[in-house]
Computed example of a mutant assay.
Amino acid sequence: MPLPFLTADRAFDTASDDVALPFEDHDQWRRPYRPGPWRVGAAALVLLLASFMLLAALITAFAGALPGALGCLGAAVVMIAGALRLLRMGAWVSRHGVRRVRLFRTVTVAWGQTSAVRTVQQPVRLLGLPRTVQGQALVVVRRGGEQLALLTDHNADFLARVEAFDRAADAVEAWSEEYAR
């Protein structure tokens, strides 16, 4: 079974340095990096818990308590949807702009509305928690001066993966150079 979210990202790993945008279809939204092990591990744990909830719903349904079974089934469906959303979180790029996907909110900025995409040193959240540490962030500066942090080197995709953060930041900056005119 093909996994398009993994195969699409391999193009960035196998592309030579002279090809900044290795995809043929630039209209499709793509994540220019693979999901990190922290993000995949958290989603796997949530899916494991959801499987236990589905089993509990099945046992409860066979025991004859239909309202309890429906409650377990509903909770499992919410957990599965949350795990899928967790895997979709991150920065996505296309010819139309850059998109930051979070758990409950998505922000899209057209390339024409950006004035710069750059990597800066600043305090960043460690795994999205309230604690901040000194690190790097890839920020999009909008025309009005507002900054939008796309990636940090301490989030669930890049914690302890400095080379992957650098490659992802370079890829987003290449998309910006190509389309932000």
Results as ranks from 00 to 15, higher is better:
residue 1 M to W: 15
residue 7 T to E: 13
residue 8 A to P: 07
residue 8 A to F: 03
residue 9 D to R: 10
residue 10 R to F: 04
residue 13 D to W: 06
residue 15 A to M: 06
residue 19 V to R: 15
residue 20 A to K: 15
residue 21 L to C: 09
residue 23 F to Q: 11
residue 23 F to T: 13
residue 24 E to T: 11
residue 24 E to D: 15
residue 26 H to S: 08
residue 30 R to G: 01
residue 30 R to C: 00
residue 31 R to L: 00
residue 33 Y to C: 01
residue 33 Y to K: 00
residue 36 G to Y: 04
residue 41 G to R: 02
residue 45 L to N: 05
residue 45 L to H: 05
residue 45 L to M: 13
residue 49 L to A: 11
residue 49 L to P: 02
residue 53 M to F: 07
residue 55 L to N: 14
residue 62 F to W: 13
residue 62 F to V: 14
residue 63 A to L: 12
residue 65 A to V: 15
residue 65 A to C: 03
residue 69 A to I: 01
residue 70 L to Y: 08
residue 71 G to M: 10
residue 71 G to C: 09
residue 72 C to H: 09
residue 72 C to I: 00
residue 73 L to K: 02
residue 74 G to A: 15
residue 74 G to D: 07
residue 77 V to H: 05
residue 78 V to R: 09
residue 79 M to N: 13
residue 82 G to E: 01
residue 85 R to A: 04
residue 87 L to C: 01
residue 90 G to T: 02
residue 90 G to Y: 00
residue 91 A to N: 06
residue 92 W to P: 01
residue 93 V to N: 03
residue 95 R to N: 07
residue 95 R to L: 11
residue 95 R to W: 06
residue 97 G to E: 00
residue 98 V to R: 01
residue 98 V to E: 02
residue 100 R to S: 12
residue 100 R to Y: 03
residue 103 L to F: 10
residue 109 V to C: 08
residue 109 V to F: 02
residue 112 G to F: 00
residue 115 S to L: 12
residue 115 S to V: 15
residue 118 R to F: 00
residue 121 Q to P: 07
residue 121 Q to M: 11
residue 125 R to L: 00
residue 125 R to G: 06
residue 126 L to F: 14
residue 127 L to W: 01
residue 133 V to C: 04
residue 133 V to L: 10
residue 134 Q to N: 14
residue 136 Q to N: 12
residue 138 L to Q: 04
residue 140 V to C: 09
residue 142 R to A: 10
residue 144 G to E: 13
residue 145 G to H: 03
residue 145 G to Q: 05
residue 146 E to F: 02
residue 146 E to T: 12
residue 148 L to G: 02
residue 149 A to H: 04
residue 150 L to M: 10
residue 158 F to H: 13
residue 162 V to K: 14
residue 168 A to N: 07
residue 169 A to S: 14
residue 172 V to M: 04
residue 172 V to Q: 02
residue 173 E to S: 09
residue 173 E to N: 15
residue 174 A to R: 08
residue 175 W to D: 06
